[in-house]
């Protein structure tokens, strides 16, 4: 006789086999499909971190909305930061399909239990930073994110398709800000080069540690969440930047950067991984400021969210009473 517990094991094995089969065929896993707990947890962690990065990433740029030097630039920047809020929304929704609520994710962020991309812990002291963020940070994000459009988890992949389209526009506007500055006066050119100097290395760090020190990469690649290794993506990114830097007339701040014909890759200086780990562990130039702003917005908005919930509750009650009266 087969006990219910044994049946559960058999069902699990069958489900695992189906899951493995879908992954092997490079097909999509959908929210109601069975999936291993570790796969679910990995996705929740990755998607929510990505969502948090979009939300925190609004801050360094919103810093310049009020001071944008022309009305056209103000409109474009505002549209861009607003897109980022939209990306956060799609991503939180994608994560919610895995069984976690937005409130829970938001609370993890506020409590400092969740990570977001360290790049946003760097400050934006000049207007040229809007250009450098678009060109370098959004450029790196695109290299990272385009392969995610094919991630095995359906809702994540689909959210990424839309996000990547918009990111590509964001990168272009960043490039154009820098181009305009480089074609401007001496002070503007200096401002542009200074921003490229400050953002180049942190942007390269966005691809994460070198392949031999990246603990989660192998499993994510086996699950078809991640498609290319950190170092491969970093190489692609640099390959994209070099000709664009020439068009801009900016110098990428690495004296050792050159194409290695024999190995078909770029040689470059060693990344300062010490800085990477410092910022990652919360000791970057703007970590505290970013967290403070998010916490304040969340706490100061609590009464508004409570009011909306209470109003919705009362409305539902009224509708119920009205339908009861009719019946």
């Amino acid at each position: 006789m087969t006990s219910p517990a044994d049946l559960g094991v058999v069902e699990n094995e069958a489900a695992q086999a189906l899951f493995d089969d879908l992954i092997a065929k490079d097909s999509r896993i959908e929210p109601r499909d069975w999936m291993p707990d570790a796969y679910r947890k990995t996705l929740i962690r990755q998607i929510s971190q990505h969502a948090h990065s979009e939300i925190i990433g609004m801050q360094p740029e919103s810093n310049w909305i009020t001071r944008a030097p022309s009305l056209k630039r103000k409109a474009i920047l505002m549209a861009k930061v607003q897109d980022e809020a939209g990306h956060g929304l799609y991503l939180y929704s994608a994560a919610q399909t895995l069984g976690i609520s937005r409130e829970e994710m938001m609370q993890q962020l506020i409590d400092g239990r969740a990570r977001y991309s360290s790049i946003f812990n760097y400050p934006t002291p000049t207007w040229a930073d809007m250009g450098a963020i678009g060109w370098l940070v959004d450029g790196a994000a695109i290299c990272n994110q385009v392969p995610l459009c094919r991630a095995s988890y359906g809702p994540y992949g689909r959210a990424m398709v839309r996000i990547c389209k918009e990111e590509s526009f964001h990168q272009r506007q960043g490039f154009e800000i820098l181009l305009e500055l480089m074609q401007g006066n001496e002070a503007q050119r200096e401002m542009a080069q200074d921003a490229v100097n400050r953002w180049y290395w942190p942007a390269l760090m966005m691809f994460g540690p070198p392949d031999d020190e990246s603990p989660n990469s192998a499993q994510s690649m086996a699950w078809n969440i991640k498609r290319f290794s950190n170092d491969d993506l970093r190489q692609r990114f640099v390959g994209m930047l070099v000709p664009q830097a020439e068009v801009l007339g900016v110098t990428l701040p690495d004296p050792n950067l050159k194409w290695n014909e024999a190995e078909q890759r770029y040689d470059m200086s060693e990344i300062d991984w010490n800085e990477f780990h410092e910022v990652l562990s919360g000791r970057g130039p703007a970590n505290a400021e970013r967290m403070r702003r998010r916490r304040e917005a969340h706490e100061e908005g609590a009464w508004v969210r409570e009011a909306a919930a209470e109003y919705a509750r009362k409305q539902a009650e009224r509708e119920l009473a009205a339908s009861g009266a009719v019946a």
Binding site: I142, V146, C164, E176, L179, R236, P243
Partner: peptide, 22 residues
């Protein structure tokens, strides 16, 4: 912005495969 940049600028995503899984 595209017009201003011209042909010298290549879309960042142009050489990455965005096709969904078959």
């Amino acid at each position: 912005s595209r017009a201003a940049v011209g042909d010298a600028y290549r879309d960042a995503d142009a050489d990455l495969d965005t096709r969904p899984a078959a």
